[in-house]
Amino acid sequence: MSKKVLFVVYQSPVGSVWVNEAFRTAFGMYGEDVEPALLLMNEGVVALARECKPERLGLLSVKMVQRYVKRYGTPVYAVGEDLDAYGVRDVDEGFSAQTVGKNKLPELFRQHDYVIFM
């Protein structure tokens, strides 16, 4: 039976590498019997902002992961309250992210064998 793994990023997509690394790790799972998913929470939700562009600072883009999200159909979740708290009004639909409420996080965690905070 395949293992379900949720990679969770709580750090900012600008100034820390963990959003990129979480997506890269998730995409690396597809060669094995592992089903990856991503959860963005706290500052991590800023990755979904249409105008979030770390490349303006010479840092790695976060949008480069979008074509792989589309290709693999990787589930991406974001905490709704955090989108509000960090002022993310214009969500980039290229991530195909589903919004989850904080009260649903225990249930989301429960649906995965491993929940890996990055």
Binding site: K3, G28, M29, Y30, E32
Partner: peptide, 21 residues
């Protein structure tokens, strides 16, 4: 190694632990 090996470890290990960043 690389992420394919990590994926294999996750798939084949009985237990997996991680220290968050």
């Amino acid at each position: 190694s690389g992420l394919p090996e990590l994926a294999k470890l996750i798939a084949e290990s009985d237990r997996f632990l991680s220290f968050s960043a």
